[in-house]
Design a binder for these strands. Structure first.
Lengths: 209, 209
DNA sequence: ATGCCCATCTAAGCGCTGTCAAGATATCTT
DNA sequence: AAGATATCTTGACAGCGCTTAGATGGGCAT
């Protein structure tokens, strides 16, 4: 009776059906889109009966939450490597933003699931907001490194929130074809994103000029 | 054979089932949430058989598109009256932003449907982007009135897009309970929104200082 | 090694869904 | 008055999420 730990190490019949289901769901999700994903299809993809998933997840929502968790982990990695790549601290925020949007654009289905499950609970996962080196804290620390006053916590939190919301809004809208001509005028999608983030002026309001 | 015009004036049996279905859908949507909305429930609410809606809409998606259309019209009105209320041009953009987010927070279900249907087609409705006095143009004009150079069209479009994305991101995230303490610290939801928009600095980058 | 326990998986079924085809009914046109 | 046509209903199909009951087989105590 040691399956109370976070992840069952070695289930019985299938090997690791929980893992297989999450993978199958991610696969179908990115292939068919979030609205087309059914629990039965996931079971089919994993080669088990339609009722099998219910021994590993309370319901469909819980499976999606597990998929979303994976997504937040991936996003965390993407942001970490973007921050490592950034040349100077005051350019790092916009680079984080670009990396954020690129992640969302490259994994549209999982990105959608991440926010859909979060909104259902009106609660962002700890992974994003709570942990010491979460994505949120990465943004906040970057703002401080860029010159924001670390003692003015309200202002820092507001700025971090502003940055996050901007990136999320851009991530959701960058796919609309109305912006195609703007992307071309900027010379590609990434330059377009950079230009938008510069317009948002996320740093200038934090530094004591 | 004059039903080819935008809205059937006076259909046969029901009176105006198309209208009644849209209203019923809006009602159920705001009451039960987007995920709980079924076409059959809409028909039930309108007092007709489950197949009746198919004489007015190709499928469920087309009904939702009609509901979304109503939403864009409502949003347009909200933004127009916010702009009329604004004291000075350089404060108007942030006021538009606050009004935008308030609309989304007061009509969460319809707001979701607006963007869900738009994303399905990767295409925003003309009502938002195309028309001469659409919501998009309202934001752009406000930026010009606040001092942006109207001849630099690329810059204006980027700034308008940046503003729109920021507002949309904020609208989607303002519901998360992680931000409750920030709202309290700011003295309410609207002051919180104002503070965030100020951090986004949407105007400062447009005016030639 | 045997036998029990229980986790895992399957089979079958419930009520729901979106959608369609066929038929009934009311309105418009002539 | 009669035919055409738009509207609405009935009945059906496949698929969905989820539940219950039963089959299967690995882990563990004896």
């Amino acid at each position: 009776m040691r399956e109370s730990s976070a992840a069952e190490a070695r289930p019985y019949h299938h090997g690791d059906l929980r893992r297989a289901l999450i993978d199958a769901a991610s696969r179908l999700l990115e292939a068919e889109g979030p609205s087309a994903l059914s629990l039965r299809a996931v079971a089919r993809e994993a080669g088990v009966s339609p009722a099998a998933p219910y021994h590993h997840f309370k319901d469909k929502g819980e499976l999606l939450e597990a998929v979303a968790q994976e997504g937040w982990t991936l996003l965390d990695k993407a942001l970490a490597s973007a921050k490592a790549r950034a040349a100077s601290p005051d350019k790092a925020i916009n680079e984080l933003g670009v990396a954020y949007v690129c992640f969302a654009r490259e994994n549209p289905a999982i990105y959608r699931v991440m926010y859909d499950t979060a909104r259902d609970r009106e609660d962002l996962p700890d992974q994003m907001k709570g942990d010491k080196d979460s994505a949120y804290c990465k943004v906040r620390d970057t703002l401080v490194e860029a010159g924001a006053d670390p003692t003015d916590t309200l202002n820092i939190e507001l700025a971090t929130t502003a940055a996050w919301c901007s990136a999320h809004g851009l991530a959701e809208m960058a796919g609309f074809k109305q912006f195609e001509h703007l992307k071309e005028a900027c010379g590609g999608e990434v330059p377009f994103l950079r230009a938008i983030f510069e317009h948002m002026g996320l740093v200038s309001h934090m530094t004591p000029e």
